[in-house]
């Protein structure tokens, strides 16, 4: 307390936000743990505690394993591709050429659409027979009718991940671009004078200075990937079989379609632990690597 401005009474300002956060976010998370040990179904209020039965059940029937591996594959593909493509686009858009504003707009527009609209439009893109991909393939004499990306076990998960990548690229690109624009021009010049090729300037000057934007983008895409729900819900309904059922989709399905609140809560607790562990691991690692100009 160095300044007369600072008074403990200032903490009253936290109360409204903190109250909402505690009541509608933290308290429900704690209740989740309670429900996960019960046979609660949402209707009968006096439920029984059944120990770890819910947990052993979701692991035994494979629901937890399948949705966990689907979510992890989704997240990995999403983080890698959305950041690589966005990074490439940002480098292109950062060149000193005309109309970058127009290009940036074209890259950004998909992020404005609601997931539900995006899901509908991409369902058309993937449709066998008359969809976009099938039609284009038929021009080249390839029979598109048999290509059912969303209906195929091995491709459905990647197909919905691609949709999310498409919607997310604009955001990451804009963040990378802002990062690139903070790279001091004289640093790049100095590199060139010292005889660095443009690849070396990119590799040894631009990329290290992009570390902050990289941390932000990887963290955001990681969180986004682990939250995967929308396109399983809108485009595939978790199918075919359980091929696209992510953790959150499976929790939603168990809770609101099968009314198994206890089991759904157990899966939510599992997701909670996985998500927290992965996020903490990455945030700690990435923060270590940052350098500043």
């Amino acid at each position: 307390m160095n300044s007369a401005v600072l008074k403990k009474t200032m903490y009253w300002f936290v109360v409204p936000a903190l109250t909402m956060y505690l009541v509608f976010w933290i308290y429900p998370i704690l209740r989740l743990f309670q429900y996960s040990f019960s046979d609660y179904n949402g209707f009968i209020q006096n439920f029984n505690y059944i120990g770890f039965d819910n947990f052993s059940q979701i692991f035994k029937d494979g629901v937890a394993g399948t949705s966990l591996s689907n979510t992890l594959i989704y997240t990995l593909v999403f983080v890698v591709f959305s950041n690589l493509i966005a990074l490439g686009l940002a480098f292109l858009l950062n060149m000193k050429i005309r109309a970058t504003g127009l290009y940036r707009t074209a890259a950004y527009v998909p992020t404005l659409f609601s997931a539900i609209v995006v899901g509908f439009i991409w369902s058309y893109v993937y449709m066998p027979d008359s969809g976009l991909i099938a039609t284009v393939l038929s021009w080249f004499g390839v029979d598109g009718a048999s290509l059912n990306l969303l209906g195929n076990y091995s491709s459905a998960l990647y197909a919905i991940t691609a949709v999310d990548v498409w919607k997310h690229i604009g955001t990451s690109t804009v963040i990378f671009l802002a990062g690139l624009q903070t790279v001091p021009v004289d640093l790049e010049e100095a590199g060139r004078i010292d005889g660095a090729s443009s690849w070396q300037v990119t590799r040894f000057i631009r990329l290290p200075l992009l570390a902050t934007s990289m941390t932000i983008n990887v963290t955001l895409s990681l969180i986004n990937g682990l939250k995967a729900f929308d396109y399983s819900f809108i485009m595939t309904n978790g199918g075919p079989g359980r091929a696209t059922s992510t953790l959150l989709f499976e929790i939603f399905r168990m809770a609101f379609r099968e009314m198994q609140y206890g089991k759904a809560s157990a899966l939510a607790v599992v997701s909670f632990i996985v998500i927290i562990a992965i996020t903490i691991f990455f945030v700690l690692r990435l923060n270590k690597r940052e350098v500043s100009a």
Partner: peptide
Amino acid sequence: LYLFFLCGLVVPSQMVIIPIVQT
């Protein structure tokens, strides 16, 4: 408080929706 609020970024809403509705 800062870290406590920040933690909320990581938890997806679909995951906690059952107890939220109950609350």
